[in-house]
Amino acid sequence: MFRTRWHRITVFTIACALALCACGVQPTDSSENTMASQATAETASYQPVTITNYDFTGKEVQHTYTQVPQRVVAVYQGSIETMIALGLEDHVIASYGLDNEVKPEWQEGFAAMHYQETVFAPDKETITLLQPDMILSWGSLFGDTMLGDVSAWNEKGVATYMNSNTRPGGYPRTLENEYTDILNLGRIFAVEDRAQALVEEMQAEIARTEEAVQGKETVRVAVVEPMGDSISNYGANTLAGDMVTQLGGELANPDGNEMSKEDLLACDPDVIFVVYMAYSGDDPESVMASQKAVITEDPALASLSAVQNDRVYLVMLGDIYAAGPRTIDGIQTLAAGMYPELSK
């Protein structure tokens, strides 16, 4: 489910932006001196870390970090927000690709991320000019015509890390993958305590909910995203599906990526979560209302139990897809809809 916004940017705008943005994010002499001092201090006690990640084909690749990366390029929402959540914004020399506003508690960190508004995702020529020592992004961008090949970057001494739930090849997307990414980045940047705290918060929310619903009737859940004339279904191999299962729910339709209205009626879930995506510049309330109405206002779907019982809820895509530190928000949103009695 690769989502880009190329249609929002004209070719002329891209050409101009790529020519200018590399220069615009170069650190000043003062910031270079600060980064150099910080790197020296961090390297003095740094123990080499070997991390397993992936290339554009989904193949496992290993990279050994001998020092904390100081010139990171972060592309996409989860990449940007993970760096902020771990307190690593001062290691980022350029960032791109926000679909949604950064959460209020991360705004201060975001201000230091050298965010480039004119280009959603840069190409490898732009990245090369930035001289990074690490590129953090999604699997769909690590192609030769985009950010560039993982092996080629690694051979130049530039580390790459893709969110594990965007690994190409149809691999299951799981909560465990999100935990692993956060913990790996904690090891790479020597902030293991911060990373562990984020993961433990997510795990504790799952455990608390599981304990609270023991002995209760299993809730049947569908997580769907209306997309024009079709409905995309988040099944067992998706992060949202794994969240539902780990929270003690049952997926009403665990198979398949797409369903018809007839399919939705046939599985008749107790609860339906409708996925929405409010792009920067859009009116979030309008987007949410119109997306939910596709399910709740369609006469053909009026007989659904979830519609009749007013159990159709919204969930933001960024909270249940390659979510990074927003994983906790996805867990909490799904738990609240599945078990509203727990929040009373």
Rank of each mutant, 00 (worst) to 15 (best):
Y276W: 11
L18R: 01
V223L: 00
D319F: 10
T64P: 01
V61H: 10
L317S: 05
I9T: 15
M35G: 01
M338A: 05
T160P: 08
W138F: 11
G87D: 12
R220L: 06
R71T: 04
G228M: 08
A39E: 08
D55H: 09
D298E: 08
R220K: 14
D298I: 13
N33W: 05
S30L: 09
S79Y: 05
R208L: 12
G24Y: 13
Y115C: 09
P122V: 01
A300W: 07
T28G: 15
L86Y: 03
L198C: 09
N165A: 07
G58D: 01
M202R: 02
T145V: 11
M277N: 13
K103L: 15
E125W: 12
A94L: 06
T209S: 03
C23F: 12
H91S: 03
A15P: 03
L317T: 07
H7P: 00
V294Y: 14
F12E: 10
K59R: 14
Y313L: 01
T50P: 13
S290W: 02
G97R: 07
R326M: 09
I127K: 08
V68T: 00
G157H: 11
K261D: 11
F273T: 01
N163L: 14
Q116V: 11
Q47M: 14
V150K: 13
A278I: 08
R3V: 01
L88M: 05
E200L: 10
F56S: 06
A44G: 08
S305Y: 11
T82V: 10
A121V: 12
L98E: 05
N163W: 07
V224I: 15
D144G: 06
A204M: 11
S286M: 13
A85C: 04
L98F: 10
E42Q: 11
Y171I: 03
T66Q: 15
S37P: 06
G215V: 02
T28I: 03
D268P: 05
E285S: 10
I295E: 04
V68L: 04
T166D: 02
D242G: 02
G169L: 00
K59C: 10
D329C: 02
N257L: 15
V119L: 15
N165E: 09
G169C: 07
P27I: 01
A85K: 02
T4S: 15
Y234D: 03
C23D: 10
D298P: 00
M338W: 08
C267I: 15
L20M: 14
P69W: 04
Q70V: 08
E178Q: 08
V191T: 11
L342R: 02
I9D: 09
S280K: 10
M277R: 13
I295A: 02
D133V: 06
P168F: 00
S95D: 07
T166W: 01
P284C: 07
L98M: 12
A152N: 12
Q203W: 09
D90N: 12
D242L: 09
V312A: 00
Q70A: 06
A39P: 12
T128E: 03
K103W: 05
A293K: 05
K344G: 12
L185D: 04
G139N: 03
V287W: 06
N233V: 04
T50C: 13
M1S: 04
Y276C: 05
T327V: 14
